[in-house]
Every structure is written in C-alpha cells, then in structure tokens.
Design a protein around this nucleic acid. Structure first.
Length: 321
DNA sequence: CGCCTTTGACCAGCGC
DNA sequence: GCGCTGGTCAAAGGCG
C-alpha cells in the first residue's frame, strides 16, 4: 500500500520553508548597507522571533494534518477490510442466487444491474428459472457452466466534466475499447472496454454517462483481473479530466454487484437500507466518513492540493516579512 | 509497425 | 417468425 509514501509527502511539508530560510537568511538588499546594520539587528531579531513563532505554529498545524492523514489511512485500511469481509460473506449468498436463477438470462442480469445493482429476485426471474430447469440436459448443463464463470460485477461512479465525451475512466488498468452503443434507456452512448494488459484477462468494463446526472459516468466492471494492477497510482491525465471517486475493481472484488457511488455526499436510499434504514445510524455515518477518508487518501490531487495550500501559506507568510 | 479507436455489421436473447 | 435491443466482432483508419 502506498500510505507510507503518502505520509512522507505530508511530513516533508516543513522541509521546504526551512530550507528557504537557510538558503536566503538575509534579503539581498540588506547586504552591503552599513547604514541599516544597527537598526536591522533589532528587526532581524524580531523577524527571527516571528519566524520561530510561525514555524512552531505551522509545525503544530502540520502535525495536526499528519494525524488527520494517519486517521484517514487507518480508516481506509479498515474500510478495505470491511469490504473484503462483506464480499466474502455475500459470495455464498450470491452463489445460491445464481443457482436459484441459474437460468437467468444475460439480459436479465443486465437489467438488474441497471436497476442500481439491486439483487431483488423478482417473480419473473424465479419463473424463468423454473421453466428453464425443464429444458434439455445439454442446455441446462451448458447454462450451468456459463453461470459458474459468471463474472463478478462492480459498479463505480465517476464525476467528470459534462463536456468531456471521452468516456475514459482511468483506474490503473489498461483498457481497449471494442465497441460503443447507444442504448434505449439512455441517450448517452455506452462504451465497451476489455482489459488489454493481459491477453487472457477476462475483465470487461462498460462506461456510460448517468441519465440523471450527465456529469457522472457509471463504469460497470465484470470479472476479476488475473494479473496485478499495472499502475497502482495512475493520475487522471490527458483527455480524462474526471476524478475517479469510486473504487477500481481489485482482485478481491467478488460477490454481487457492488455500487460505491462516492459522487454524492449524502447517503443514498440503498446505502441507508444497508444499515437498517436509519440515516442517523452511527454505523452509516461511520461508513460514509470512511468512504470520504478513503476517497481523499487515494486521490493524488488531494495530496497535491494540500501540499500546495500549505506551501502557498508559507510563501505568503514569507512575502509579508 | 503495432496498438488503439471508430463504427457498421452481425449475433443472440427476449417480447409480442 | 419478426422486430427490438444489447453485446460483440472486425475492418478501416489514426497515431506515436
């Protein structure tokens, strides 16, 4: 995990201003001006005191920020563990559902995905399952085989600029676009991607703008990568101006459709349901705090912005002096 | 030259 | 059987 480097980044924030002080202890104009020497001793002392005071203040601030980041990292780790536990728990349930709906067709699965990842088993699915169980052995065994290799599905939401039509979601993996379609329920085209890092990698990705909010791109991952992530910390660059707020599919992803919509700050209905429908539930609030912490600690832009803000503060303070 | 994107064609599932 | 729809294929062209 990259948290150590993350912490190092923030811990170094004081180094630059200190070096600046060492490198330029006295402004150039003051050198060689004997007239100011006497009076300057006082001002230099004042400046030094002020600088020391400021340094102490900023050091304390930096310490606070470091502590905050440490807490965020811990929360991130905890969230990951919880996600792994959750997926591990739900995997057998999913398998049962797959058995029950062994005959559920491709299209059905897709429709359930489009319904926000609800795993509700409606009567229709049950009925089709029953009818298909009476089909020929060859067909049923074939379908059972297909169900066994049924890819695991993970949905993520990414906020991008509306003007950005690239539909590219940088998640650290390499993708090859193999198709694009305009679907009936959404005027925005849906792009189809395959993982191109490993030829045998079965993972596919569908990317489409949300019909409700054009600034949100929904990426649906199917399957598991059979190779390590080529670039763990890949920043959003080039044509992609979006900030990946969701989670990329990891090799640990498993179970039913998991939707992590981090583009919103308020809990969704689905999320509140997960915690017994109580929006005030401490578990739910803890869950969202962890999600936000995870998002921030994972976002290199956040780190850069934090460093820039603190550095900028130092520079402003120096200019005043 | 190899990789990628684009895009029209094709295939399969599903409803009527 | 037919039409609609989503998913995939593959040829063509662009780009580094």
């Amino acid at each position: 995990m990259e948290f150590t480097s993350l912490l190092n980044t923030s811990l170094d924030l004081n180094a630059k201003p200190l070096r600046m002080i060492e490198d330029h202890p006295i402004p150039k104009q003051e050198v060689g001006s004997n007239l100011f020497e006497l009076g300057r001793d006082l001002t230099v002392n004042d400046e030094r005191d002020a600088l020391i005071e400021e340094l102490n203040r900023v050091t304390a601030e930096n310490k606070k920020l470091t502590e905050l980041l440490t807490v965020m990292c811990e929360n991130c780790t905890e969230l990951r563990n919880q996600l792994m536990e959750y997926t591990a728990k739900t995997s057998p349930v999913d398998n049962n559902n797959n058995n029950n709906t062994a005959a559920s067709k491709k299209r059905k699965a897709e429709s359930s995905i489009n319904n926000g990842g609800n795993n509700n088993m409606d009567d229709k699915n049950i009925n089709t399952g029953a009818s298909e169980s009476s089909s020929s052995d060859e067909d049923s065994s074939k379908k059972r085989r297909e169900e066994h290799v049924k890819p695991k599905i993970l949905r993520t939401c990414v906020r991008t600029e509306v003007s950005d039509t690239s539909l590219i979601v940088k998640d650290g993996y390499q993708w090859r676009k193999y198709g694009q379609k305009v679907t009936r329920d959404n005027p925005s085209p849906r792009a189809y991607f395959k993982c191109s890092f490993a030829p045998t990698c079965p993972v596919k990705k569908k990317v489409q703008r949300s019909i409700e909010d054009q600034s949100i791109v929904v990426a649906t991952y199917e399957g598991e990568h059979n190779h390590p992530q080529p670039s763990k910390v890949e920043t959003n660059s080039g044509s992609n101006k979006g900030v990946a707020l969701g989670t990329a599919p990891s090799s640990n992803s498993s179970g039913p459709t998991i939707t992590l919509d981090l583009t919103k700050s308020k809990p969704s209905h689905e999320d509140t349901k997960r915690f017994g429908g109580k929006i005030d539930a401490p578990e739910l609030q803890h869950y969202f705090v962890e999600q936000m912490a995870s998002t921030l600690t994972k976002d290199p832009n956040f780190k850069a912005a934090l460093a820039a803000a603190i550095t900028g503060n130092f520079l402003r303070q120096n200019e005043k002096m």
